[in-house]
């Protein structure tokens, strides 16, 4: 038996919005640790890893580990029926082939439930080795989103370089080229407005902007994003989900033949 009650239901709505364009079908894994998901996009270039820790739920019952295969677009459609202030409860029976989403409005005078058929998915769960990153940059998530959007109107790929000077985003296209540099800036009113650069070694990697733009759908989940880079490794963009966990996106670089 599985029963997860999330008071801040809007978080789940945002999580689905952040993932549904990148991944079509995915297995949600439920264990004593929490509610999690790992899935790749269809071209196996990008990966999303979600964790909502059990402590973040008002009520968390998971008698045995359950894997639930779902079409994320369908889950997103169901969650659009929940109000932003609704409490969301996810229920499933062990060995069952359905999941139920229940929505309660704050006044507790409207209760909706939606039952959805689960899918049997063959998923390739990837082992991600721990890595030492050459550079870790924390910056406002809205700024990162703006940069990816602006540069994609000029080019298809971005070179992200981190030096002592800052983090530089460069692109080139038919109309010309563009460079945006964000310097470390910790003299801000609020810590979430800071750009903080931790660099062990200068790094420069090329990525497809299309995927980075897709990752920025998670912007509403967190005011900051942490970008980790190492030469010869996928980029990690992490959006922390307050008190609950994270959504991390991995993106393989483009490299010289």
């Amino acid at each position: 038996m599985l029963e997860l009650r999330l008071v801040q239901g809007s978080l789940l709505k945002k999580v689905l919005e952040a993932m549904k364009d990148l991944v079509t079908d995915a297995n949600f894994d439920c264990s004593a640790t929490g509610f999690s998901l790992q899935a790749m996009d269809s071209s196996h270039v990008a990966l999303v890893a979600l964790l909502l820790r059990s402590e973040g739920f008002e009520h968390y019952r998971c008698d045995r580990n359950i894997t639930m295969g779902m079409n994320l677009n369908n889950v997103s459609k169901l969650l659009k029926c929940a109000g932003n202030d609704d409490i969301i409860t996810i229920k499933a029976d062990d060995g069952g082939d359905t999941v139920t989403f229940m929505f309660e409005n704050p006044k507790q005078d409207k209760i909706s439930d939606f039952e959805m058929k689960l899918m049997d998915l063959d998923s390739e769960h990837l082992g991600i080795p721990d890595a030492e990153y050459h550079a870790i940059v924390r910056m406002p998530s809205l700024e990162f989103s703006r940069i990816c959007k602006d540069l994609s109107s000029i080019g298809d790929t971005v070179v992200i370089s981190v030096t002592k000077e800052g983090i530089k985003f460069s692109t080139r296209g038919d109309i010309g080229n563009a460079n945006i540099v964000c310097r470390q800036n910790t003299t801000v009113d609020k810590p979430e407005e800071a750009t903080v650069i931790q660099m062990n070694e200068a790094v420069s990697l090329t990525f497809a902007l299309r995927y980075l733009n897709s990752f920025t759908k998670a912007t509403s989940l967190s005011e900051t994003v942490t970008i980790s880079l190492s030469s010869e490794l996928p980029l990690v963009a992490e959006y922390k989900i307050a008190d609950m966990g994270y959504i991390k996106f991995y993106l393989a670089p483009k490299i010289e033949d």
Partner: peptide, 14 residues
């Protein structure tokens, strides 16, 4: 030129 690498190059299938 540049080519897009897949994640399998860095991560292993469990």
């Amino acid at each position: 030129g540049l080519h897009q690498v897949r994640l399998f190059r860095f991560f292993f299938v469990l």
